[in-house]
Computed example of a mutant assay.
Amino acid sequence: MTSFVGPELTNPRAERVKAVRALSGRSMRQRTGRYLVEGPQAVREVVRFASVHELYVTAAAADRYSDVISDAHERGLPVHLASDEVVAAMSPDAQGLVAVANVSSATLDDVLASRPTLVAILASVRDPGNAGAVIRAADAAGADAVVLTLESVDVHNPKTIRATAGSLFHLPVVTGIALDTVTDALRAAGLAVLAADGSGAHDLDDLLDVAGPAGAGDRSAAPDLAAPTAWVFGNEAWGLPAHELELADAVVRVPIRGQAESLNLATAAAVCLYASARAQR
């Protein structure tokens, strides 16, 4: 039988409810060191892989997602029963489950210590949906880390978290670092730094053809996708300006075979990361 901490919360205007709801704003997250995680998929993953302060759940959600509640109990997390109105007041996207998690961002030193072979760098990416989708793609491709540079979106924005579909909690995500700092550090750790840009001198398909020891043709002037690699992806609107492209060892374009003008950020990132994952594996 599921057990809960305290009586059922039924007042959607209670101060406690307002405090949880306020975590959707960046200022409250910075002030408290906590953030809001909404919905069964994200809550399931944050309970399993990250530091959680407490959970709020409706009776129906507790029955439907009993595995999440069991995991929370196994980890000794406080689980509060709340009415549908209370959980909806905390988050309209909760689907009956809300977690309050503790901010614990990874550091660049943590990433370097893990000897990474595939890293995604987001340079001034400001759309939470795009940032979340790239984190999800990086996780799926087996990347070792994601880095968001200065001026990028807050990864603990609820929209970003939803877009990651739980992947935010699966791999290190480093934030608030200058692009030149991270590219210098990763290069010093043995990774090639490749910028994804339509102006690139190298075609991604051509690089795949010559990647690794079994690659065919001359690759003397081309980066090897089978080698440890950090990909740099630019802002949704203006991409990577010239001074940022200069920080890369090579600039690579994703070939466009049809009539589309370009690919959106998340799609291009997924293509590039999977190209490296294929070559490395």
Rank of each mutant, 00 (worst) to 15 (best):
M1W: 14
V5W: 14
L9Q: 06
R13V: 14
A14S: 10
R16G: 15
R21W: 04
S24L: 04
M28G: 02
R29M: 08
Y35H: 14
V37D: 05
P40G: 11
Q41Y: 13
A42F: 13
R44H: 12
E45N: 13
V46W: 05
F49Q: 12
V52A: 08
L55W: 05
A60I: 03
A61Q: 05
A62H: 07
R64C: 14
Y65W: 15
V68Q: 09
I69M: 06
D71M: 12
D71I: 09
H73F: 04
P78T: 09
P78L: 07
P78S: 01
L81I: 14
S83T: 15
D84L: 08
V86L: 02
A88N: 12
A88E: 12
D93N: 11
A94F: 03
Q95D: 10
L97D: 06
V98W: 00
A99Y: 07
V100G: 08
N102P: 05
V103I: 13
S104L: 04
S104F: 04
A106N: 00
D109S: 12
D110W: 10
V111W: 04
V111F: 00
L112G: 01
A113M: 08
L122M: 08
A123L: 11
V125K: 01
P128A: 11
A131P: 08
A131L: 12
G132I: 05
V134W: 02
D139C: 02
D139H: 14
A141Q: 08
A141G: 02
G142Y: 03
D144P: 00
L148F: 03
L150H: 10
V153D: 00
D154G: 12
N157S: 09
N157V: 05
K159M: 15
T160P: 03
R162D: 05
A163R: 04
A163M: 01
T164R: 06
A165P: 11
G166R: 03
F169P: 13
L171E: 06
L171H: 06
L171K: 04
P172S: 13
P172K: 11
V173K: 02
T175A: 08
I177V: 10
A178Q: 09
L179Q: 00
L179P: 05
T181M: 13
V182T: 11
D184T: 10
R187L: 12
L191A: 00
A192D: 13
V193C: 05
L194C: 15
G198T: 12
H202D: 08
D206I: 03
V210K: 03
G217H: 02
A222D: 06
P223D: 01
T229E: 09
G234Y: 07
N235C: 03
A237W: 14
W238S: 15
W238A: 15
W238K: 05
G239Q: 02
L240M: 06
A242W: 09
E246I: 03
E246V: 15
L247T: 00
A248G: 04
D249Q: 02
A250W: 10
V251N: 05
V251I: 11
V254S: 06
V254K: 01
P255Q: 07
R257C: 12
G258M: 13
Q259I: 10
E261S: 14
S262G: 07
L263E: 13
A268C: 11
A269Q: 08
A270T: 10
V271W: 10
A279H: 05
